[in-house]
Design a protein around this nucleic acid. Structure first.
Lengths: 344, 344
DNA sequence: TACAAAATCCAAAACGTTTCGGATTTTGTA
DNA sequence: TACAAAATCCGAAACGTTTTGGATTTTGTA
């Protein structure tokens, strides 16, 4: 493996100049730079990462800490890993996942990794309210980026979608169709995005001068099973039955469809259904009949910004450039209709 | 972050001795070693990995190269990643996955990674006959370990299960029950394990003095869909209909069960079914009715040896200690019966 | 006690890169 | 041409570790 020294000897240049030429510094003659670049290619030079890391004091490794994903939770976990991995690779960073045991303390795992110096920064997914991971890393002033954001001040890099807007739009859409009992099958209680969606939902209700029924809110892991269970529960409630259901994602929506089918209720004649579509490759909204009305925002498009922002943080890019709330589209399709008064 | 130099000054020792004390060299007084270790803990010392890598000439990173997993293929891919990641973490190695694009050349990706010096060794999964990855890495004499092994000479580290034996046992079991038309729904053609299983199947047929019907062999990605399609095809063949089916794994078996149900054929009254069970956490053999007769060998138990063997290769452990063919269990359950003569 | 052997220690070099501070050369201007 | 400014270059230090080759101290034996 050729080194800078080899190149220097070959070109009769100092190691310094070779290094600076390759790294695009300004104080090197363009002709020289060209010669160096050609020589580098010819001698198949590739910088020694360990040496570079040693002087930079960084490791070039980005990490994601998570527990072993089990059951339904693992369904889209792979997409996260693959997506982030590809994006970091593009930026010449390594990306590792650190799996922690069931009964291992999460913060302790972060502490170890931070102390080891093996990792330059973390990606935090599934942020929760008052997230201890964020608190810990902020206290250590260690670089990280968050997928999502908190209801509090967010003085850290993040990429998020407009969850408030998503819920507001879906609710508003249903209200305009005359629905007064609108159920929300939300994500895990305590998660930031669920909180944001609940707020959006409540705001739309308030704007439509509709009362808020806590009973119409369901929460849990965003999987098919939650959709099934919640739908059945909502529709067996004796007093307030929803005439419309907002599903937190496509998996939940699938559960809702299955349950409604089992309950012999038609969409949208008996019940309207809407959802948010993360455009998960393996769970397509197009598979729904009747076609599902959704807000749409591809989860896949978050990996690029997340990687970018984390690298940016480490390189000292100002915070304002490392925060983004991505928009969403509204796709009106066939799963919603004006409310009717069929007793169900 | 404390360095060796800090420790040396604190203890009034040379950097050399501190290093040797911590690394367990013999020429350091036990009392000194103790002092050093205590000081290291007290000053929260943790070795700088970049510096260590620089002098060792290694990166401490193990890699897995793969294409973006799509569709059914992604189902157990996560288990591979998580399993290997955890095992390497246990050995203080980093583990990264390198995702390559649809139209990117695989060997070229390996070449780049090898040249970059960013990676110490590779894990190769899904080995195929005359695998170009193995050929490339062997030619470069670059460390790697293979999940599986080839039909040729295997002068490299590997961990495999006894695929020949699996197929032989399953086939023999069915032959003993009087079956003469035994179908094999195998993995991808060209893959090493499929080839081994085919050989085991044929050997058992030969031992039972039964003819080999190529029509009874099906191949493909080992997913439910293959099981469904193959079963229907096998049973709509006009001449030779199998009275028993060997499914390559649990997913295929699930497809077989579904297809047989759809075809209104009973297990084992009309058809016997056996399978190999990799003990995938999300696809349990216990979910089958009637209970499925299987050979069993947990895929999960391969990640440890694979990580161990790859680390061993790099450290120069002799090859004999880096090769293993794991055994399997035979579990006779309710999905097999003596052949009968019901015309189907 | 004397001397060899064993035990314990250390200074310096090496890994390959980046960067600091300054040196040298070229260019521009009067 | 003379001199300042700009452009281009370089030596040396630094990052933190391991290892080499030898120095020093302690122990064992006669």
């Amino acid at each position: 493996m050729a080194t800078l020294k080899d190149l220097g000897e070959y070109l009769d240049l100092s190691v310094t100049q070779v290094s600076r030429a390759l790294n695009g510094h300004s104080d090197v003659n363009e002709k020289t730079r060209l010669r160096v670049q050609q020589a580098a290619k010819k001698l198949n030079y590739s910088p020694n990462i360990a040496a570079r890391n040693l002087v930079s004091g960084r490791s070039g490794v980005m990490g994601l800490v998570s527990r072993v994903p089990v059951g339904e939770a693992s369904d889209n976990y792979l997409d996260v890993i693959v997506g982030l991995s590809a994006q970091f690779a593009k930026r010449n960073k390594q990306f590792i996942i650190h799996i922690i045991d069931k009964n291992e303390d999460e913060i302790e795992a972060y502490r170890k990794l931070v102390n080891s110096g093996a990792i330059d920064g973390f990606v935090i997914v599934e942020a929760i309210i008052n997230d201890p991971r964020i608190a810990f890393l902020q206290e250590k002033s260690f670089p990280f980026v968050v997928h999502g954001r908190t209801p509090n001040e967010n003085n850290f890099p993040y990429f998020d979608i407009d969850n408030y807007g998503v819920a507001y739009s879906l609710t508003e859409h249903l209200i305009k169709l005359g629905h007064k009992h609108i159920a929300l099958i939300n994500g895990l209680e305590g998660s930031c995005y669920s909180a944001a969606r609940l707020k959006g939902y409540q705001a739309a209700l308030a704007a439509g001068r509709l009362p808020f029924y806590p009973h119409l809110i369901r929460s849990g892991g965003m999987y098919e099973s939650l959709g099934i269970v919640s739908t059945v529960q909502l529709l067996t409630h004796t007093e307030i039955k929803p005439t419309a259901i907002i599903a937190g994602n496509i998996l939940i929506a699938r559960g809702v469809y299955k349950a409604l089918d089992a309950l012999k209720l038609d969409i949208p004649q008996h019940i309207s259904v809407v959802a948010h579509d993360d455009v998960l490759p393996r769970f397509r909204a197009s598979a729904f009949y009747p076609a599902l009305t959704v807000t749409r925002s591809a989860l896949e498009s978050s990996w690029g910004p997340l990687a970018e922002y984390l690298c940016g943080t480490i390189e000292g890019v100002p915070l304002k450039k490392l925060q983004q709330v991505a928009p969403f589209e509204f796709m009106t399709r066939a799963s919603t209709a004006a409310v009717n008064n069929i007793k169900i």
